[in-house]
């Protein structure tokens, strides 16, 4: 049902259409995705984005950016040479 409502909203709303609670909701979305929101805040966000396409879009984008940062940035491994060099310099 929520997805259908969002589809209708998407079809009817222009890109510029704003939600009065967008700023607050975005802050709470970020807290929720960082696993730092209270239970009440998370419940508010989930309920709100179920009926507000604008905020759902923000939520989806925030999630996607986090995933892209995590999965698309280079992840290096320390070579054995560096590990050995460090251990050789530590008096253990």
């Amino acid at each position: 049902m929520g997805a259908f409502i969002r589809w209708i909203q998407r079809a009817m709303m222009s890109k510029e259409a704003r939600c009065k609670e967008e700023e607050r909701c975005l802050e709470l979305v970020r807290l929720m995705l960082d696993d730092q929101a209270t239970k009440e805040d998370s419940e508010y966000v989930l309920k709100h984005i179920d009926g507000c396409y604008r905020c759902y879009d923000n939520y989806d984008l925030e999630k996607t950016i986090r995933k892209a940062v995590k999965s698309k940035t280079k992840n290096l491994e320390v070579s054995n040479e560096i590990v050995e060099e460090i251990k050789s310099k530590v008096p253990i």
């Binding site: 890109k15 704003r18 700023e23 975005l26 879009d57 989806d60 984008l61 999630k63 996607t64 950016i65 892209a68 940062v69 698309k72 940035t73 280079k74």
Partner: peptide
């Protein structure tokens, strides 16, 4: 400031390369 951000879609971010994100 977020209000003046040019439109950015999830699909666009998904299509970006690692170098672009980096």
């Amino acid at each position: 400031q977020v209000q003046t951000t040019p439109d950015l879609r999830s699909e666009t971010v998904k299509g970006m390369l690692g170098d672009e994100i980096t």
